[in-house]
Simulated scan of single mutants.
Amino acid sequence: MSEEKDIKTGEAGATAKKPSEKKRKRAITLGVVAAVIIVAGAGFWVWHEQPSFCNAICHAPQDPINETYDGVSGEAGFDKWGNPVEDMGDLLVVQHKEAADATCLSCHVPTIGQQVTEGMLWVSGNYQYPLDERSLTDLNHYLQAEDESAFCMNDSCHNMTRDDLARATSSYGKRNPHVTEVKHTEMECSDCHKSHRQSVNACSRCHDDVKVPDGWLSAEEAAEITSAGFRY
């Protein structure tokens, strides 16, 4: 009887271990799944901030803009409209990428509502081609910033005031567009500063004595290439 009891006890012990073994395997499986999800999520988030994500998921017209982001200083290329650029380092998108590791979402900060709207336009095929050029006022709409200059001049980017900027560009003399007293109120920063194409000295539309910085275009030159058609 004693031997028979021990056998039964042993069988009961073995049986008791089975649920614990299942729990252990389940815990390991859940841990592996969680690790995979975390790694995949991290990889997706990194991709989410790259131009290729925008192009692959939604924006079919993103190709020419992607090419500007992929530009390299000192090498020739094309702007977002297909116009030749002698040095891609003249484009602000390349300068910000190389100097500050900026990505698309460093400047384009969409809201959930905007992303849903763009997703619906993509599904319906009712999207613009080529994409319209956004002003800083347009971009600041999503950041809820009242002053369009706050898009660039803030604690995270260019930590300076308008007065600081005016002093930094004092060599412009009387045509310094950053001096509040002479700045045309109907103009904003993005009238001159472009990201995916060469920047433009908009002052040259009216003033023929202004200096056009190296790598920039005069207002006349910009008007000519803007209306020249698209490569895509």
Rank of each mutant, 00 (worst) to 15 (best):
Y142P: 08
M1L: 14
R26K: 09
S195F: 12
A222H: 09
T103C: 03
G10T: 14
E49H: 15
E4P: 11
V72K: 13
Q198C: 12
G43K: 04
S20E: 15
D155Y: 03
I28S: 10
C58K: 07
L139T: 01
I112F: 12
K23V: 10
C107D: 12
E67M: 05
S218P: 10
I57H: 07
D90L: 02
S195R: 07
N176I: 01
Q128Y: 04
V210D: 09
A223Y: 08
Q144V: 10
C107F: 13
H48D: 14
H193P: 06
M88A: 02
D6F: 03
T68W: 05
K97F: 02
T180Q: 10
S135E: 01
D90T: 11
P64I: 03
I28R: 12
A202Y: 11
A150R: 01
A150S: 13
L105N: 14
H108F: 11
Q50E: 08
R134E: 15
Q50F: 05
E86N: 08
V39Y: 01
K25V: 12
I65R: 00
T161N: 07
E188I: 01
G215R: 06
T180W: 01
R134I: 04
N66H: 02
S218K: 04
D209I: 11
G41E: 02
G215W: 10
G31F: 04
C203T: 15
R162H: 05
D87T: 06
M160R: 01
A27K: 13
L121A: 12
K80N: 15
T111V: 03
V46I: 14
T180E: 14
C58G: 13
W81T: 00
T103M: 07
E49D: 13
C157W: 09
G173C: 04
K25G: 05
L121Y: 06
M153Q: 05
S156V: 08
K25H: 09
H96G: 02
F44Y: 15
H184M: 02
V116E: 11
N159L: 01
V85K: 03
S170D: 11
L217T: 07
P213R: 04
P19I: 05
S124E: 07
A40C: 03
V32I: 15
G89H: 09
R134F: 12
T111E: 04
R134H: 07
G13S: 14
G77A: 03
L143W: 10
Q114T: 06
A150T: 10
A102G: 01
E75I: 00
L217I: 05
D6L: 07
H196G: 03
A166E: 00
E98K: 00
V36K: 00
T169D: 02
C104S: 08
